[in-house]
Design a protein around this nucleic acid. Structure first.
Length: 376
RNA sequence: GGACAGGUGGGUGAGCGGUUAAAGCCAACAGACUGUAAAUCUGUCCCUCCUUGCGAGGUACGAAGGUUCGAAUCCUUCCCUGUCCA
């Protein structure tokens, strides 16, 4: 994996670049759709590559390890072949499940002891084992095991989790280097900056992690319940310390109007379940703000969801029809809604990228800020 | 014509003397959702009023009477529905 910096905004930290992987080139800044279980829920790979033109998607180590299992996936030719996705894949380590499955796990220095949410079986994830599992998948970008805390966390707890995350990153890296030497694999491994909402801890963590000389760095532990301003603050405290020539990935963000804010702070990659999950729940992002399609006001609305959107859903169907599909619990709704929301996110990122390349990002950002009355 | 079974809030369907404005589910109407245990979860869901409270009134379990301190729940008559028998 190689990062090529193409342009930098003179007024903000925004950058445009290219990430070259064994499974294609990714234009950054990029939003990566989340496909936890080797599927972006509701969207066929054909549309993901075609209509949406996503260059990279996420998958999850914990979920795929439990089902169908990394050995099965490896046996069937790796994750790309298994899921018929020839483009890039980033796999999360399962570190987020340390946070989201909090009552099913136990964190020790050695790793995370999980009880499967499927059948209750116990499994141990270590910094080394998650790397091995991700190698088995054949991920283009692997993530190191980290400890993601809920908000709020005490300074002491945050420090402990950060220390552990650094140790795990080092252990993961030692193992990763060994495996790369043996196999010649091109998979990249990203360490993750933690430190909860303490800028000092974030800085310490970033400083220690860059010693790993990783091909890219992630900022984790955000969007766990803290005020939006804090998430941006933590990002802002971290990105200046990260190497300029490596991509920065903020994990798990954000709302559409927040994307350019992260970009302005030097972030190149983002992912979030909001466009896909909210789509399934009837919450649609449009150029004119949110549309909660189940609202009675759309019952007889013949207009397209978003007149400014080029997606198949907006080109083809009325709000009234989409509402009907939602109310009736029809499967097609999820597909059409997700297709739209992801188009909204990906197009927004493409606009951001264009504005950086053309030198107009500052104006673009001001325009978003002016329109986003709801931004805190 | 006769014998059973039954009629409960928008729909289904519990309740079978007081803790019942009446469970649950569905529908309807809102809210939440940020490295996905999510096609999920939460709230509201008879009317009126206010000092918005496990508040005050008023209606309500086919209809009308009755028993009882108290009835959706027990009794009587009537109306209606389903099944079966003539």
């Amino acid at each position: 994996m190689r990062f090529e910096l193409q342009a930098e905004c003179p007024d903000t930290g925004a950058r445009a670049g290219l990430i070259h992987t064994a499974h294609g080139t990714i234009e950054t800044p990029v939003f990566m759709p989340v496909g936890t279980q080797a599927t972006v829920k509701g969207i066929p790979q054909r549309d993901l590559a075609g209509e949406l033109d996503a260059r990279i998607i996420l998958a999850n180590t914990y979920h795929l390890f439990l089902r169908p299992g990394h050995e099965l996936i490896q046996k069937l030719g790796g994750l790309h072949q298994f899921m018929s996705w020839p483009r890039a894949i980033l796999t999360d380590s399962g570190g987020f499940q340390v946070f989201s499955l909090s009552d099913l796990r136990k964190v020790t220095d050695q790793g995370v002891l999980f009880r499967s949410h499927l059948d209750g079986d116990a499994h141990l994830f270590t910094p080394e084992s998650t790397v091995d599992v991700q190698f088995a998948f054949g991920s283009d970008i692997m993530m190191v095991l980290d400890e993601c805390l809920a908000y709020p966390a005490s300074h002491e707890a945050a420090n402990r989790a950060m220390r552990r995350t650094i140790e795990w990153a080092r252990a993961g890296y030692r193992h990763y280097r060994r495996r790369v030497e043996e196999s010649g694999s091109e998979s990249a491994l990203f360490p993750i900056v933690q430190g909860s909402m303490f800028a000092g801890l974030r800085k310490t963590c970033a400083t220690e992690l860059i010693e790993l000389d990783a091909p890219g760095y992630a900022i984790g532990g955000l969007s766990v319940g803290e005020p939006r301003s804090l998430s941006l603050e933590m990002t802002e405290a971290t990105t200046p310390l990260l190497p300029r020539g490596r991509p920065r990935y903020v994990m798990g963000v954000g709302m559409p109007e927040e994307l350019p804010e992260y970009v302005a702070r030097g972030v190149d990659m983002m992912d979030c379940v909001l466009p896909s999950r909210n789509a399934r729940n009837g919450y649609l992002f449009t150029s004119a703000g949110r549309v909660v399609i189940k609202h009675a006001r759309y019952r007889e609305d013949p207009s397209p969801l978003d007149a400014n959107c080029r997606c198949y859903t907006c080109r083809t169907y009325s709000r009234a029809y989409l509402r009907h599909l939602f109310q009736a619990g029809e499967i097609l709704f999820s597909t059409l809604a997700t297709l739209h929301n992801l188009t909204h996110y990906l197009d927004r990122m493409r606009q951001i990228r264009q504005s950086i390349l053309l030198g107009g990002f500052r104006n673009f950002l001001d325009g978003i800020r002016g329109a986003a009355v709801e931004l805190p």
